[in-house]
Amino acid sequence: MGIVKIADDLHEEARRASAVMCRSINAQAEFWMKIGMLAEANPSLSFNDIVQAQIAAAHVRLPGATTA
């Protein structure tokens, strides 16, 4: 684990988002980084496509979810 310096305004946005998403500030920043890395590696996928792929890869079954 290391320390990552980010701008104060970005830290504040992560703090606000973490409260809404019930995550720690660190978990929110990690989520954004992971999604950003996946988006860069898969530019044709939407945010929803990326999240659905991650849910499927983790073998999470969501009630009412449709499968392709």
Rank of each mutant, 00 (worst) to 15 (best):
Q28R: 04
N42D: 05
G2S: 11
D9E: 12
R23K: 08
R23G: 03
A14Y: 07
R61V: 05
A17G: 03
L10D: 09
Q52N: 14
D9A: 07
E30C: 00
R23W: 00
E12Q: 12
A56G: 08
F47Y: 15
A56W: 08
S24D: 01
K34T: 04
A17M: 05
N26E: 13
I3W: 06
G36H: 01
A19C: 06
A56R: 13
I6K: 12
A65T: 05
A65V: 03
M33L: 13
M21K: 08
A53G: 15
V20S: 09
P63H: 04
M1T: 10
I6G: 05
E40Q: 08
A39S: 11
L38Y: 07
A27G: 02
S44R: 14
P43G: 03
K34W: 05
G2L: 12
Q28D: 01
I35P: 02
V4P: 01
Q54G: 10
K5W: 00
A65N: 03
N42E: 07
S46N: 05
T67S: 12
N48K: 09
E13Y: 06
E13M: 07
R61H: 04
I50D: 04
F31D: 04
M33C: 07
M1D: 08
A65H: 06
Q28F: 04
N26C: 11
N42C: 03
D9Q: 11
M1A: 12
I6C: 06
R23Q: 06
A39L: 05
S24T: 14
A65F: 07
R16H: 12
L45F: 02
W32A: 03
N42F: 04
L10V: 12
A41I: 02
V4M: 08
M33Q: 13
Q28I: 02
V4Q: 14
N42I: 01
L10I: 10
N42H: 11
L10K: 12
I25M: 10
A53S: 11
T66Y: 06
K5N: 09
S24Y: 00
W32P: 00
V4W: 02
F31P: 00
R16M: 13
V51F: 12
A41T: 05
V60A: 03
S18G: 10
A27P: 04
V60P: 02
L62W: 03
D49C: 04
F47I: 15
Q52K: 14
E40C: 05
P63S: 08
A58V: 01
V4F: 09
A17P: 01
R61M: 02
A53D: 11
E30M: 06
R23L: 03
K34M: 10
Q54H: 10
E12F: 14
R15T: 15
N26A: 15
N26H: 14
M33W: 07
K5T: 08
A56T: 13
W32C: 00
P63N: 09
E40T: 07
Q52L: 15
A39R: 11
I35A: 05
F31S: 01
A29D: 07
L10R: 11
V4Y: 10
K5G: 06
A56F: 10
M21W: 07
Q54M: 15
A57R: 14
S18W: 00
D8F: 01
G36W: 01
C22P: 01
V51E: 10
